[in-house]
Design a protein around this nucleic acid. Structure first.
Lengths: 217, 217
DNA sequence: CTTGTAATTATTCATATGAATAAATAACCT
DNA sequence: AGGTTATTTATTCATATGAATAATTACAAG
């Protein structure tokens, strides 16, 4: 039915399809959906522009696939982390839960330029008001976010679930922004940022958000 | 030198220049910089496309002016609020400071469709990695943010200024996201959002962020 | 009123861009 | 080998778009 299937065999083969996704990820991150153009993606990936259409159809479809690919992995990691946490204890600390949620994307960002690009893509997607962007976000993330909300509600029985949901949204905003914006944070600290290691930054975020989640009514 | 000056007289006059800015604001909010197009802005504003060029030069210049217009007002309100707070007491509460920072934009959002559009524009701008976007943000907001950081440092002497700066960045992320994303928050609460009034939402945010700012090391 | 300048519109230009089509090449099966 | 399907490229299409230029109108001063 017209889908390539080179991967199941032995030989390497460049697998141009994945190459397209990789480069699309970079371009979308730099320019956003509207600002990206297929010719550049094709050129950077070293393929003909028509190939993008062959594999993905439209520009929008390419974007979606791009987003789903890593987004799915991310959501998966979050699920696994939460599973692990709940295995070890019935009532993990708020810090542990927040950390379990944040760490996968943190790692992704620093694992490769493409991981960082995905963070940027995601931050941009979250600023887009179009229905389509919303749908995509829901599709990829809603399930795992809701599970985290439920778990937080469990360990914070004094806080109504409504409020935990809202606070979870604050959390997402803070962490996406931070992850995508470390350069700007450097501005605000007037250069003192160097004293911060990357991991310490994540710890800071976890501490901040956990305190917020716990805040009494 | 080629700048119109209709305002100093008495007569009303539609002042097309401002109309362009108003409609540009809406279009930029919906589509982002790259996705916006001048023909649509001109059409919505009911003017010829050439007039945009006449008044603003390039699309980028139009965007900048659009952003500076309201951004300047916003930064001004924040300064005034902080002045007032410091007049009333040497050591205002963290909540008061956070509220003073957030309230102007909150009000702007609900004052008019254009106010809401500006929030969206701003959220998008904060997700753009281009140097130009960064410059604009710095130009419009840095001074007031730094003042708030200094004040927070004053009332939170137990927290090093570096850390306050970083937490302030978390704050900005959370509030921009929330303000631009109330619809999505509705998703997460599974419809229970109706029980929340708008003002209560702002209170929730203030409480969350204040707790985060205060979090012990 | 007429002349100079500011404001506004109509039109054109050049190019970028997503999509489409057709042709060519490679892989696979029998 | 021969035929069929999958992959890849070259080329074309249609249109969107920012910018530029020229033409027109409004308006103020003398």
């Amino acid at each position: 039915m017209g889908r390539p299937s080179r991967n199941d065999g032995a030989g390497a083969g460049p697998d141009l399809r994945d190459g397209i996704l990789d480069h699309a990820e970079l371009v979308f991150a730099e320019a956003g959906f509207a600002g990206a153009n297929l010719r550049e993606i094709a050129a950077r990936a070293g393929v003909n522009q028509g190939l993008i259409r062959y594999y993905f159809g439209s520009k929008a479809d390419l974007f979606d696939e791009c987003f789903r690919r890593r987004g799915g992995v991310l959501a998966g990691h979050r699920h696994v982390n939460l599973d692990r946490l709940l295995e070890m204890s019935d009532a993990p600390s708020v810090e542990d839960i927040v950390y379990a949620y944040l760490k996968p994307q943190w790692d992704m960002k620093y694992s490769s330029p493409n991981g960082a690009a995905f963070v940027a893509m995601q931050a941009r997607l979250h600023a887009e008001p179009e229905e389509h962007a919303l749908r995509l976000r829901r599709e990829v993330y809603d399930a795992s976010v809701k599970r985290y909300i439920a778990t937080l509600a469990l360990v914070l029985p004094q806080i109504p679930k409504d409020i935990i949901s809202v606070r979870m949204a604050f959390l997402v905003g803070a962490y996406l922004f931070m992850l995508n914006d470390l350069g700007r944070i450097g501005d605000l600290t007037e250069g003192h940022l160097t004293s911060f290691g990357k991991d310490e930054m994540l710890d800071q975020l976890v501490r901040f958000l956990s305190a917020g989640l716990r805040a009494p009514l």
